[in-house]
């Protein structure tokens, strides 16, 4: 079944096709969301929300893009929304902490389940550095590293040219090196 058939049947409310879409793309959506929000529970919620939106707004999908590209865009948008929500909650929490001081907060270390065992420590440092990147650089880097997308595919998802993606990734690498340098200078001593 090609994309046009899938969309046609999905628009007609065929639940079997919807189940196929979920089964086919759930790992892709979850893995992307996890790379961005770096929290398994949030990534799970985002994955559910993405497919609910697919079900509800399949009629709005313009067939000029690939279905997977559309899914990546929804996932990114939902993940960034989730981050903003968390930041708002954190700001509220900050006020709370001023009035009710508790024990010091420990920096969160993220452990991606797909990383090989001997790379876990280095990957945790890298994920920590990724969190500090500017938004577009972070998204491009996550799509390249975790989803193995080509620069052309990243460009289609982020709606930018391949040259812009090249430059974005180069800047992301430079920034990551600098962040990691600072981190290891503090922690290797």
């Amino acid at each position: 079944m090609n994309q046009a058939d899938i969309l046609e049947r999905l628009k007609m409310g065929d639940n079997a096709v919807f189940a196929d879409i979920v089964n086919l793309w759930q790992d892709m959506v979850y893995n992307t969301a996890l790379g961005i929000v770096q929290n398994e529970e949030d990534a799970e919620d985002i994955t559910q929300e993405v497919f609910v939106q697919v079900y509800e707004s399949i009629g709005d999908f313009r067939e000029e893009a690939k279905l997977s590209t559309w899914l990546y865009r929804i996932t990114i948008s939902k993940s960034l929304d989730m981050e903003k929500k968390k930041q708002r909650q954190k700001r509220g929490g900050l006020l709370k902490r001023i009035f009710e001081p508790t024990e010091a907060e420990v920096p969160v270390s993220f452990d991606h389940p797909g990383v090989k065992l001997d790379n876990k420590e280095n990957a945790a440092a890298l994920f920590n550095a990724i969190r500090k990147l500017p938004e577009k650089q972070r998204l491009a880097f996550v799509l390249q590293k975790l989803e193995s997308l080509s620069n052309e595919e990243i460009g289609a998802v982020l709606q930018m040219s391949v040259v812009a993606v090249d430059s974005l990734l180069a800047r992301a690498r430079t920034n990551l090196k600098s962040i990691l340098k600072g981190y290891y200078e503090k922690n290797l001593k």
Binding site: A19, V22, N23, Q26, D27, M28, Y30, N31, L34, E40, A43, E44, T47, Q48, H112, P113, G114, V115, K116, N119, N122, A123, A125, L126, A129, K145, L146, R173, L176, K177, L180, K181, Y184, E185, L188
Partner: peptide, 27 residues
Amino acid sequence: DDIHKKIAASLESLDGVSRATPAPYLL
């Protein structure tokens, strides 16, 4: 040198990473 090695190792740590999968019964 150690720091440079660690930076390089960190940047390569996601090479060959496998996809994370959601909990069962997502559908």
